[in-house]
Design a protein around this nucleic acid. Structure first.
Lengths: 342, 342
DNA sequence: CGATCCAACCAAAGCGGTTTGAATGTAAGC
DNA sequence: GCTTACATTCAAACCGCTTTGGTTGGATCG
């Protein structure tokens, strides 16, 4: 059933039917009622492609997800997408996902713009001076960034306060008496990782502690990364008494290594991890397992989608930015630094 | 730059330009060359919405991802999507992701069909008698299922041989001398979980072992699920000597519980897990940590996408089905059953 | 040499909506 | 009683592409 047929059935012109359905004021209330009723009974839904062509609005938001150099897709992404996706659905938008190797990314953006297939794109995993930002600006495509670049250009973004978050976590460990604190970070090219490192370093510097570069690690955030790194640290000379992790997945590896070394997490070795509060890796228990800096990446996805739709529909005008503080949750993985062995 | 403008520049009609670009034969070779060249220099890309409207092909595949009752999104999904997404990109298709609560699912399919916004949909997480299958058939929307329902209707699907896979894993444990084997499964409503349970039961029955229903668990596959279940089992009366897990995430929880009980995995307690070979949870090491039944969910996503596109473009005609065997990988998590305590 | 064929190109009609610019009929104003 | 204003409705243009059904002019054929 298309508009023409529906209007024939009703004995009205397509114009009036279209207006009735789209809530234009110049339609008689009774007529509108009839139209809406008829549309419901006949199951009329406007053809999305025709509508898009006519309005020039794609009613779709693009997410270009680059596969990293190791071809890994971050599972955190699933939760982010879920949060954003729910909002899109409610607002009548589609989510257009494009998964491409890093090298084909720019091409992917250009194609989306030229073909007019989206109303805007979400930039994931921003880098230091992300080339995508000038590119999108030049192409005139609305965008919003999850996270921030290093430069000070103006654009819309939503991010968590990674620096303060990790500075606070580090300070907490320092207060517990820890002096050798390892950082198991994500890849330093990712800005969130860089900011976390800075936060960690801020706290150490403030406490007047000389940093040991051998305690800072940077890699894809996998369980084995946490495990092997921790194993090496704990069995090596001068092991740390505390570890700071960028992801719950890494923290699980850390935990495994600790217990395999015959040590107890929270007593012999303290661990704080960032927790994205994903549904598949809940950090729960009577008392949560891990002390963590927590922020729901799913909530972030939802909020970012909201902001973006508001921007696109000109209900607000940008650039709009939102910086979320994380919540520090105390779990069983932290405790006072053990006394130096006599 | 649109088709009209391009054709004006070239002094040709839109018809000829369109045909030249789409590879129709009735165009002079030299003319075609000129057209293609001009398109490249002016950066002409056909407006996707106009093209879609005109051809009636959405050039998009829909994935309706239902959030489960606990509002959880399976991270495995990220890898599946990545696999499918790469194939879509190469074939010029878009992926349209719709994330909706289970209750709104049917509505979501109907909307996609009525609005003509996709050329087909992928059905995720099939249930016993999945109502989506008759629905899609009735709506005349092409579809393919990742997994299988319980009924014997004909439709296209791609699945792994969950039953044989778990039967084999169980047999292996039996050969090692284990008699009390716990199964930490996914939700039984999911068909993959049900089939794994059947495989497990097949093997026990064949070995003439009376099943203990208290050893079968069914829940969302999270780390704490593995941990708490295992903890309770090991500290309870008559603990199992081996555990079979449906997911690497659950297995990590199992492993944590085991070491927390002062036991050693692979010696005191054996563990086999299914491994979807996701990039964020690699099961590696000199020897892999876990003995596992392995099958790349990402490869499955890619292959399913290929098959589906072939179906949609009528290069093959359905129903087409593909059943993959899993690979059994030996890791450090299994060993002979410990001798009963004297 | 007129008829036939073919290669190459084009005008115009969709695809299914939205939107502009009028037309119509009736109530209000003088 | 004749405008004027307003509330409704509609015809037709348009969005940018594909595709149907020609048209044109030169080569081939009998």
């Amino acid at each position: 059933m298309n508009l023409k047929e529906l209007s024939d059935v009703l004995g009205l012109s397509p114009t009036t039917v279209s207006r009735a359905l789209n809530g234009y004021p110049e339609v008689n209330a009774e007529t509108r009622r009839r139209v809406i009723e008829a549309a419901a009974t006949y199951g009329y839904v406007p053809n999305s492609m025709a509508k898009r062509l006519a309005t020039g609005r794609a009613m779709a938001i693009g997410h270009v997800v680059p596969l990293n150099e190791h071809d890994m897709i971050n599972p955190i992404f699933a939760d982010f997408i879920a949060g954003a996706g729910e909002v899109y659905s409610k607002a009548g938008y589609n989510m257009l996902l494009s998964i491409v190797p890093e090298t084909a990314e720019e091409e992917s953006y250009r194609a989306m713009v030229a073909a007019n297939s989206v109303d805007g794109v979400v930039v994931h995993g921003p880098r230091k001076d992300d080339h995508r930002i000038p590119l999108l600006r030049q192409l005139g495509m609305p965008f919003i960034v999850h996270g921030r670049t290093q430069s000070s250009e103006e654009y819309s973004w939503l991010d968590i306060n990674n620096r303060r978050s990790f500075s606070r976590a580090t300070k907490y460990l320092l207060e517990l008496g820890h002096r050798r604190i390892a950082l198991l970070n994500g890849l330093d090219a990712m800005q969130f990782a860089r900011r976390r490192r800075l936060g960690y370093q801020d706290a150490l510097t403030q406490a007047g502690i000389t940093q040991d570069p051998d305690l800072i690690f940077s890699a894809d955030m996998t369980e084995p990364y946490g495990y092997h790194t921790t194993k090496a640290l704990l069995t090596g000379p001068n092991p740390p008494t505390a570890l700071l992790s960028s992801s719950l997945i890494v923290a699980l590896g850390i935990s495994r290594a600790i217990s395999e070394c015959g040590l107890t997490m929270g007593r012999d070795v303290s661990v704080i991890t960032h927790d994205d509060a994903t549904s598949f890796l809940p950090n729960y228990g009577q008392v949560p397992l891990f002390t963590s800096t927590t922020s729901s990446v799913r909530a972030a996805g939802g909020r970012l989608a909201e902001l973006f739709i508001d921007l696109i529909e000109h209900r607000i005008d940008g650039p709009v930015t939102e910086l979320w503080e994380t919540e520090m949750v105390l779990g069983t993985s932290t405790g006072p630094a053990p006394r130096p062995q006599p």
